[in-house]
Nucleic acid binder design. Structure first.
Length: 577
DNA sequence: TTGACCACGTA
DNA sequence: CGTACGTGGTCAAC
């Protein structure tokens, strides 16, 4: 179940099998862990923790509670003992209170109802530190109710008794968060369980990496950027060669810096092309008016690979084991989608052939079909729109109902969800209002809340920070800003809920396929890539589909909405779609 | 060195 | 056409 809704019973007090675990580094090398479990409280070593996790997981399947998975889980992933259920205080805080800053001091304050603005800054170590430092009276909590900042940084936790106090504070915050979650509604506790599992998954993704075919990767990079430069001179020479292909179309202006948009704009003006900016989308319409434009657009593609996904990128982020690694976060600062670094979320399609299963393995790739309109059907509770989700292609029944072409219906639905301002969706939008008034009203309500800068929560209970666009300006002072906030809000309730379903699915898949030796290696908003031993790939694919049925049923809580996955078994990522 | 802006890749 | 993200380039201010 991977810490999902399956165990979200209504036990009144925190389960006795909650285990609080905190870490602290002593002497710069030794790491100590304080653990509060049904066996009692103890301070132990790394080996002791690993042993404890192994034993308790077998006996109790407890919910491991930590400030953040990033602090404890890397060790457990390395040792191959990964808890099934966890409560991640930082992720819970982000869901309950919004924003992204979620350290112990902030989570403690928020769960105690103390203004976050008063959370003391960490000790800076400068000369004035002495005067303003918190006196050491042996207490973890200051008279003003905040945690000692030198406990948050770990400096104060030198003695075992203090580390146990730290674990006690952790358990208290988790307990308060649980009460907050239950008070907010029926889904929030399950969302936190799922989000905590996603945070552990992020630790695994960062550690395992994405399998790559290095030979193919190098070929593709060489084709775009030239051979791997040995020296700075080599690199500059390769650059000049790439530039010359474009500049030969404009004799007399060979000194133009193609990386400087202002100079490119001047260059285009000189050949008679007058554009407001030099974006690809703008230049696309002028593609055949002058050969330099086509050359420039091709140059941009190659330049992207040369600078961002080139030889340096390969050397820096792809390990000797041919795996691409980057940091992962379980949620962004807006709707709550996962984020990834080092190209894991924005690898150009041209490089996808390089993403390949390693010898003896296959990829099981699956993506959710039309997830956003299906999610809208759940979160709005629109019975008519839910009916449309019974079709494999949701836009077909919508088109039939509106009496328009499928393409028109699709544009209208997307326009309604994303707040399109231009285009030809007008008539079909009116049809949507008549056919699916509940779903459309849900979107309009979110828009209105955004415009007035109000609070919003996703279906799963995540607080949406619509105020992030305020920028100090009062509401109503800037109509464009008000509208931008409205569009953000309208989108966030859909994108955020979709992220919640996706993470519930991912966590379920992770737990289901692990016994077969398969592991998730990429999460891409609505797409999963699982690396599986080839003998079990078919079985893994079936588990991926079954996990969607299970996760969607729990997540949607009985809403008659169907979710579909397109699942395939492939050797290279480029074979799909 | 830092931050703003541009540009562009992914969903 | 909307939203979200991460990265790298240039340029201006510090």
């Amino acid at each position: 179940m991977a810490g999902l809704a399956g165990d979200s019973g209504r036990s009144s007090a925190p389960s006795p099998s909650v285990v609080a675990v905190v870490a602290n580094r002593r002497d710069g090398t030794t790491i100590r862990y304080a653990v509060r479990s049904p066996r009692g409280a103890e301070v132990t070593s790394r080996e002791g923790l690993v042993r404890l996790v192994r034993e308790l997981e077998a006996d109790l399947t407890p919910r491991w509670t930590w400030w953040t998975a990033a602090e404890i889980a890397p060790t457990l992933v390395t040792e191959g003992v990964v808890p099934q259920r966890s409560w991640d205080i930082s992720e819970a805080h982000r869901i309950l209170h919004g924003g992204w800053e979620a350290g112990p001091g902030v989570a403690w304050a928020a769960s105690h109802g103390i203004p976050i603005a008063g959370v003391p800054a960490p000790p800076s170590g400068d000369l004035f530190e002495f005067a303003s430092s918190t006196p050491d009276d042996g207490r973890l909590v200051r008279p003003d109710g905040h945690l000692r900042p030198d406990a948050v940084t770990g400096d104060w936790l030198d003695a075992d008794e203090r580390l146990l106090l730290w674990a006690e504070a952790l358990a208290e915050v988790a307990e308060r968060q649980l009460m907050e979650a239950r008070a907010l509604g029926p889904r929030v506790e399950a969302t936190i369980h799922s989000e905590s599992a996603a945070a552990v998954l992020c630790v695994e993704l960062a550690q395992h990496g994405l399998p790559l075919d290095r030979v193919i990767a190098e070929e593709l990079i060489v084709a775009a950027a030239g051979p791997r430069p040995e020296t700075v001179e080599d690199e500059l020479a390769a650059r000049r060669i790439r530039d010359a292909v474009v500049l030969r179309h404009v004799p007399g202006r060979e000194s133009t810096d193609l990386r400087n948009p202002a100079q490119v704009k001047g260059l285009l003006a000189a050949v008679g092309v007058d554009v407001p900016d030099t974006r690809k989308w703008t230049l696309e319409t002028h593609r055949h008016t002058h050969p330099v434009i086509d050359a420039l657009l091709i140059w941009r593609k190659d330049e992207r690979i040369a600078t961002t996904y080139g030889h340096r990128w390969l050397a820096l982020h792809v390990g000797a084991d041919d795996r691409l690694r980057g940091g992962w976060t379980a949620c962004d600062g807006a709707g709550g989608r996962m984020t990834a670094e080092n190209g894991l979320h924005n690898l150009p399609a041209a490089l996808r052939p390089a993403v390949a299963a390693h010898p003896g393995h296959l990829f099981v790739r699956a993506d959710l079909g039309q997830i956003e309109p299906r999610v809208l059907a759940v979160v709005s509770g629109d019975a008519a729109f839910a009916e449309a989700t019974r079709a494999d292609d949701l836009y077909a029944p919508v088109a039939a109902r509106l009496g328009v072409e499928r393409a028109v219906a699709k544009i209208a639905v997307l326009a309604a969800m994303y707040g399109q301002r231009s285009g030809a969706a007008g008539e079909a939008l009116k049809g949507l209002e008549r056919a699916y008034p509940v779903a459309m009203a849900h979107l309009d309500d979110a828009y209105a809340v955004g415009v007035r800068g109000g609070d919003l929560r996703t279906f799963g209970g995540r607080l949406i920070p619509t105020g992030r666009f305020l920028r100090g300006e009062p509401i109503g002072a800037n109509p464009a800003l008000d509208a931008a906030r409205g569009r953000f809000a309208r989108n966030a309730v859909i994108q955020g809920a979709a992220a919640e379903l996706f993470k519930a699915w991912a966590a379920t898949v992770r737990a289901a396929v692990a016994p077969l030796g398969a592991e998730i290696v990429l999460c891409l908003h609505d797409e999963l890539l699982v690396h599986a031993p080839e003998g079990v790939a078919t079985e893994v694919a079936a588990l991926v589909d079954q996990s969607l049925t299970d996760a969607a049923r729990r997540w949607a809580r009985g809403a008659p909405v169907r979710f579909v996955a397109d699942t395939s078994i492939i050797k290279r990522w480029s074979e799909a779609k």
